[in-house]
Write a protein that binds this DNA or RNA. Structure first.
Lengths: 133, 133
DNA sequence: CTAAATGCAAAGCATTTGCAAATAT
DNA sequence: ATATTTGCAAATGCTTTGCATTTAG
C-alpha cells in the first residue's frame, strides 16, 4: 500500500489510524480537524480526538503534512506538496489547489525586505463557479 | 485627534480604550491579542481581556482592522490598509509589510479556477536581516 | 435619555496532557 | 523487548457570554 511507504519515508510509525488519515487526506485534499475526526469515526468508531491531534502534531513535525490557515474558517491540513496555492470559496468553503508562478514575487519580496525567504503562502478568496449560479 | 476621526468613519463609538487600540496599532503595525492586552494594561491597568476581544470583534465586523493568520504563531491584527503582503521572520517573529504586484497572479488564478476572486493573502516566511547575523 | 461599551466572573470549547493498555518494529 | 501509539478522562487555556455599571452620542 502506497500509504505505508509514504509514512515510512517520513519515519512515522505505521498504525491503522495513520494509514486512514493519509487515505482521507489523499481523497479529500484538505481537512479540518473536525471533519477528519468525523470521517475517521466511520472507520474507527472508537478513535479519539486526542489521537487525531497527536497525529496531526507528529505529522507536522516531520513535515509530512502542513497547515493551511484560512480567514474565517478552521485550519485545514494537507499532505505536503510542491509549492502551490489555495483558492477558497467564501460561500461553500471549498478549497482548491492551484499552481501559480510565485517565484518572481519571491525574488521581489526578498529584494525589497532583505529577508532570506524560505517559504510562502498564497491564499485567494472568492466565489467558486458552482456558487456563482 | 486622527484616531477619533478614523473610528467615526467606521461608525465605531469612540471610547478611550478604542482610541488606545488604534494608537497601538498605528505604532506597532501588527499585534496579537496577548501583546495588545499587555500594552493596553500599561495605559488602562483595569482593562479587561473581554474588552479587547469585543473590540477586535467589532472592528473586524466593520472592516476597520483585519486579521493576519500566520503559521506557528498567534494571529495578528492590523488597521485595514490597501492591499499589501506580509513577511514574517521565523526567528524573532517580526512582521513586515511589503507591497507586491499580485494583480497578475489574481488574473492567473481566476482564469485557472473560474472563481470570482475578492481578496487574497500572501505571507512570506524567512529570516530577517537582523536575525541573519 | 437610549443604546452601546466596559469590567468582572462564569461558562464554553478546542486543544493538550497523563496514564494504563495495546501495538509496532 | 522497547519504545511508541492509542483511547479515555482530566486539565488547560483561549475566547465568549451574561450582567450590572458606566459612558458615548
Amino acid at each position: 500500500m502506497q500509504e505505508i511507504e509514504l509514512l515510512k519515508e517520513y519515519k512515522l510509525k505505521v498504525t491503522p489510524q495513520r494509514i486512514a488519515i493519509v487515505e482521507l487526506l489523499k481523497e479529500h485534499g484538505h481537512l479540518s480537524i473536525a471533519k477528519m475526526y468525523e470521517l475517521m469515526k466511520r472507520r474507527f468508531p472508537t478513535v479519539s480526538l486526542a489521537t487525531i491531534y497527536k497525529n496531526i502534531h507528529a505529522m507536522m513535525q516531520s513535515n509530512f503534512i502542513n497547515e493551511v490557515k484560512i480567514v474565517g474558517q478552521d485550519s485545514r491540513y494537507e499532505l505536503t506538496q510542491p509549492s502551490h496555492s489555495h483558492v477558497v470559496c467564501k460561500e461553500c468553503g471549498e478549497i482548491v489547489d492551484v499552481d501559480v508562478s510565485g517565484s518572481s514575487l519571491l525574488k521581489e519580496v526578498s529584494q525589497k525586505t532583505q529577508f532570506k525567504l524560505e517559504s510562502s503562502s498564497f491564499v485567494f478568496y472568492g466565489i467558486c463557479r458552482e456558487c456563482l449560479d
